[in-house]
């Protein structure tokens, strides 16, 4: 009902095409993102230029890739391993896109050459890769998959 009230207010304020979604999020079947509105955005504080943002995004993708690669060290389920190998490939393709962007913003410099020696141990969601791996070792495949789904859905949420 809050959604109806909100839609009524917006229509009242002169918005022409306003709809309320019946049943709200409970009726939505499919993935939802979680976390506060600013989650994962804190890191953007000191990265201001487009070039720095591209480098930060590349680092996060690379962290996620590392996470998926290392999962292979201790997972035994073949289907799960195959899936995480596919996700690794997806992260590599994201890195290529971002690496290209970085290059165009930095006058042809490769993003790999711009990284500090002591790289931040960070992946998408602002999580530490080593923390995530320690966590994953204790968990079953289903929990790790749920974590990966949440990670990717949240990334999608933030990108759009």
């Amino acid at each position: 009902m809050r959604s109806r009230a909100a839609a009524a207010m917006l229509a009242d304020a002169g918005l022409e095409h306003v709809f309320t979604m019946q049943g709200g999020i409970r009726a939505w079947e499919g993935l939802v993102a979680s976390g506060p509105p600013e989650s994962g955005m804190a890191y953007f504080g000191d990265a201001v230029s487009a070039r720095d943002l591209a480098r930060l995004a590349w680092l996060l993708e690379d962290g996620s890739r590392l996470f998926y690669v290392r999962l292979d060290d201790f997972l035994h389920d073949e289907d799960a391993r195959k899936l995480f190998q596919d996700l690794t490939k997806a992260e590599i393709s994201h890195e290529l896109t971002l690496g290209g962007l970085y290059k165009s913003y930095s006058g042809g410099r490769a993003v790999e050459d711009s990284l500090p020696q002591e790289r931040d141990d960070i992946m998408e969601g602002g999580i530490s890769v080593s923390d995530a791996l320690v966590w994953a070792r204790e968990k079953d495949v289903a929990s790790i998959l749920e974590f990966a789904i949440a990670l990717e859905t949240n990334a999608y949420d933030l990108y759009i």
Partner: peptide, 16 residues
């Protein structure tokens, strides 16, 4: 906005 505004007809969409 008054109480009656809550009863204004508002177009809705199903989740689908």
């Amino acid at each position: 906005m008054g109480v009656l505004d809550y009863f204004r007809p508002v177009r809705s969409m199903t989740t689908e």
